[in-house]
Amino acid sequence: MQTDELIAALSEAPQPVSRLTMAGWIALGLAGGILGSIVLLAATIGVRPDLAAAMAGGPFWMKFFYTLALAALGVWIVDRIGRPGVNATRPMLLLMLPVIVILALAAAELGAVGAAEKRLLLLGRSSNVCALLIGFLAIPQFLGVFWAMKKMAPTHPRLAGAAAGLLAGSMAATIYAFHCRESAAPFVAVWYTSGILLTTAVGALLGGRILRW
């Protein structure tokens, strides 16, 4: 086809495009992912039996807001990285904030106890499964976020995949908090973060393959 003909075809009655189109994709992808992760959680590992009591205390919300803050930054990064010519450096640097906060909380808890208890605060009772379960719960999130990302125009597919993986993992970790009974900041700092790093790495691998357009 001649380029002139192509231009004529493309510009003939173009569909209006809303400014909120991309926000809509992200919202829809996240909604699907959240729903999927909740169903997966309910159908497999289940909600912690003492959820109501736990939600009255601080540790539950410490976990919840740590991962939710990462997820919010993840949304911001995904929204920027999906657009050509837009810089995502600022939200990527801001990721350090919640990490610094959780590390500070972890350091404070570790500083207040003896050597024997340090081990317990770091390993809890579920350190061997925490990161993997976050990865497991992230599967529906991956589907949702990658579906949205595929519709965008990421010019750095691997980085875009990493951002999508970060968002998927952070959302999955937020939902995992409804199952997990750990309450120590050192545990969260190490194992929740590991789970999210895992999904970020998987996202980068997938992104290089499936986010080309």
Binding site: V17, T21, M22, R83, P84, V86, K151, M152, A153
Partner: peptide, 14 residues
């Protein structure tokens, strides 16, 4: 991919 253009950002960079 025109929905990925953010009007608050430079168009030529896009």
């Amino acid at each position: 991919r025109r929905a990925t253009y953010d009007p608050s950002q430079p168009f030529t960079a896009w």
